[in-house]
Design a protein around this nucleic acid. Structure first.
Lengths: 321, 321
DNA sequence: ATCATTTATATAATCAATTATGTAAATGAT
DNA sequence: ATCATTTACATAATTGATTATATAAATGAT
């Protein structure tokens, strides 16, 4: 079964690639079948030389929409086959003017009937289902040259790009995000321990069902890009933990907005004690905690510091209102 | 200026290639612009994994219309990026079942909005000129799968393939054929001498204007494939010379038909003496001459043999009627 | 059960294009 | 007139796919 039917217009590029490969390979077979002494890749250049008599390398590359090195190579190959000859330009000594040799003229004349057959077949194919595929291609190309796919895509996405971050509460289907976003930064700074894996892989069991909370930061364009949890460690006592932002999205204040949101939620829930345990290596995080109202606290360290191997910093939220 | 507009449907394959390259490169730019951590070439596989959950390598290659090694490589690359995981098949230990990893699921979710933007842009582009380009592509694909371009081309050419050879008298625009066809075999057997070049490059001056004749054999499918000249060397005296058939067309009795035709023409012109000068190396040609009524002749050798450096065989046509 | 054939995947070699870069000639601003 | 920039082309390195081929597992005929 053909999967491209299921992804629709989104797969148009790959689909066209497949289509053109099919046509090109059929053309290749025609050349083989009728033992024509030319390669299909030369086709457009040879057709042009037949009609226009002479072109320079760069000129041809522009007209055919191929790179200059590609034409430079065709030129050499056709020279080897003696199908073309080079002439100098009167005004510009850098230019190489390609033109058909006597042999080239003869070969092309003789290839003509086969090309005519391919053309008839292509026209038949193009018109078979009522509409004219060839005309549709021309129309599509002209739409494309008015405004490229990239520009159009950007326009469609621009609107969403600057939308605010929104925050979502835990849902089962978001579990993977909690795991992946945290795994990324923990592995980056420490070694992922078994206790980490357990919590990250089963956040529902280990956080939510224990009375804790998890939130996610969602960007309109990039989806879920950050997460943060509150682990319940006693009545009205919560440890802020597993806060992370995708590395590709850092530097956009997403962490700050997320932390702010979590603090607001904690306040709304009338949390009595909000604290966190971390490590000196996490400098930028600590800087952020300090900025939003967490203060270093020896008492917290003594009470909870032992829970984690890598803990050497403990902070408590100090409401400044 | 775009040369493809001038060659029409014949250039459809190359044109579609260019079009798909443009779309793919735009897609590439979208990925770069929005810093998505996936490569465009993975797109169709990832889209499939997102929808279908799991596929084997060969299964995916068939559904996507790519080769198995291509999918095998995508599989490795996606494994390196940790976007997929491999599972074993219960029944077949050879199979590798690909499925998205937790990271893969997260990345794909986050890529989703961008894909949606590309899709919107593609739909817009496809429908901009009234008709629906996407639908036209589907229709074209279905026509193609009913009967390929190759099959259709063969059908169109089959009719002409078995048509008879026809013979044409000299025309200025056919000069190149006289030159190229003869140059090919002469260079193959001997060294092309200055006298050869002169006659071949200017057949009108050196043969026609001297009262001689040139004919060409034309194949319906392959065009001009053979040529032969009668050089006037006296009143009612003609030397049969410069007879050649394109090497790619040998073994199809074209030489025989051509020689037969030239002999008929000579008879119709009431030629008194028809002879030829050649070299022992040209065995198959000599065999043909003998078959059609030429006999070895010492007198011809003495009279005309000195004209050519490489002449060591002389023959005269002996009408057998 | 055994052996030949087929199937699933991997690896190597190849191909047709690209991008990046270098060289020489032409252009154009000072 | 001179020098920096641009243009035309060539060459090297790279990419993204292919075809050809090898290996191991499964299938199926005897």
């Amino acid at each position: 079964m053909d999967y491209f039917n299921e992804i629709g217009e989104l797969g148009l590029g790959s689909r066209l690639k497949r289509l053109s490969d099919r046509l090109m390979s059929d053309a290749q077979s025609v050349y083989t079948e009728f033992e024509l002494p030319i390669q299909p890749k030369w086709f457009s250049l040879l057709a042009m030389l037949r009609a226009k008599h002479s072109v320079s390398v760069v000129d041809a590359s522009e007209r055919l929409g191929l790179s200059q090195p590609a034409l430079s190579q065709f030129c050499r190959q056709l020279l080897d086959e003696k199908l073309i000859e080079l002439a100098a330009d009167d005004k510009d000594a850098r230019k190489k003017i390609m033109q058909l040799s006597a042999k080239g003229i003869v070969v092309l004349e003789n290839v003509q009937p086969v090309w005519a057959g391919v053309e008839k077949a292509a026209i038949e194919l193009s018109k078979e289902e009522g509409n004219d595929f060839y005309q549709a291609v021309l129309a599509f190309e002209s739409s494309l040259s008015r405004k490229s796919l990239l520009e159009r895509t950007k326009e469609h996405l621009q609107a969403t790009k600057n939308e605010e971050i929104v925050f979502l509460p835990f849902e089962k289907k978001l579990s993977s995000f909690f795991n992946v976003i945290n795994t990324e930064w923990v592995e980056d700074m420490f070694v992922l321990e078994d206790i980490d894996k357990k919590v990250l892989q089963q956040p529902e069991e280990n956080i939510i069902k224990q009375g804790g909370h998890i939130w996610f930061a969602k960007h309109a364009l990039y989806g879920i890009v950050g997460t943060c949890a509150l682990l319940k460690t006693g009545e009205g006592e919560f440890e802020l933990t597993k806060m992370g932002v995708l590395s590709s999205m850092r530097g956009q204040k997403i962490g700050e907005k997320l932390l702010q949101y979590v603090i607001e939620q904690a306040k709304a829930m009338k949390v009595k004690k909000l604290y966190l345990l971390t490590n000196k290596k996490c400098e930028s995080a600590i800087h952020l905690y300090e900025k939003l109202g967490f203060v270093h606290c020896e008492k917290i360290m003594q009470t909870y510091g032992g829970h984690y191997e890598r803990c050497n910093v403990a902070m408590r939220y100090q409401s400044n209102t």
